[in-house]
Design a binder for these strands. Sequence first.
DNA 1: ATAATATATGAATAGGTAATCAAGTATTCA
DNA 2: TGAATACTTGATTACCTATTCATATATTAT
Lengths: 121, 121
Amino acid sequence: MNNSEQIKCDCNVIHEEVVFKVRKKMPQEESLNQLADLFKVFGDSTRIKILWALSEAEMCVCDLAFLLNMTQSAISHQLRLLKQARLVKNRKEGKMVFYSLKDAHVKRIFKQGMIHSEEKE
Amino acid sequence: MNNSEQIKCDCNVIHEEVVFKVRKKMPQEESLNQLADLFKVFGDSTRIKILWALSEAEMCVCDLAFLLNMTQSAISHQLRLLKQARLVKNRKEGKMVFYSLKDAHVKRIFKQGMIHSEEKE
DNA sequence: ATAATATATGAATAGGTAATCAAGTATTCA
DNA sequence: TGAATACTTGATTACCTATTCATATATTAT
C-alpha cells in the first residue's frame, strides 16, 4: 500500500463536502505551527513551575533555582526559552537579573489549562 | 562547585521571605506536572491541526488523514494521545470511527493561545 | 587588581517522541 | 467465504530537547 492510496479513501468522497469546507476555513499552516510552538513552551514541568512562580512574584535566577531545587544553569536555559516565547521579561539589578511575567496572557492560558487539568474523568 | 552550593546562594537569604511565601503557595508537584502534560499535548503541530479541524466538524480518521495529507497511521497514533488526554471522544459507525472534541475547554485553551500567538512583538 | 558572586552559554549526552512500516482487528460487500 | 476498507497497534528509527558540565561574562567587594 503506497502513500497516496492511504490518504485518499472512499469516505473522503462520502464526506467530500465537509472536508472541503473545513479545508477552506483552515488557518495558515504557519499560524497553527506558531500556536503549537507556544503550547510547546508550556509543555514542560520545569517551565510551568517557573511560570507559576513568576505569576506569584518577580524573582531572580538564583531564587528560582533555590525554589525549584535545580541548578542555575538549567533555570537559565529555560528562562531563555521563555523569553524567546515572549512569556517573561527581565531587568538587571547589579549582579542579579529579575524575571517576571511579560503580560496577563500567561495567567489566562494557565487558568484555562488548570480548569481542564483539574477536572475528574 | 557542587550541587548544593549552586542552589543555595546569597540572594536566597536576601529574598528569603519572598521565596518562602511563594513556596508555601506552590501547588502540588503532581498538579503542575499534569498541567505541563496537558500543554504538551497541544504542543505539536499535527495535534493542533487535528484539534482545530475537530473544532469545525466531527471527522473520521480517514478524513483527517486526507485533510492534513498524512497517513492514517500517524493520525491514529495522535488521536490516541488526544483521547488519553481527554481532549477528544469517538464513536464508531460501521467501519468508520468519528472523532470530535470532548468539551468546550479545548476551544477556550485554543483561543487564549491564539490571542498570545497572534500578538505582534 | 583580585576574588567572589550571579548569570549566561556552548557542547555533550541521555531520554523522549513523532512518523513510518508491517502486521493486526473489525466491518462491509460481493 | 473471501476481498476490500477503515482503523489500530507494536517496533523501529531519526530527530528533538532538557539537563549537565565546563567555561565565559558582568558586577561587586576587598
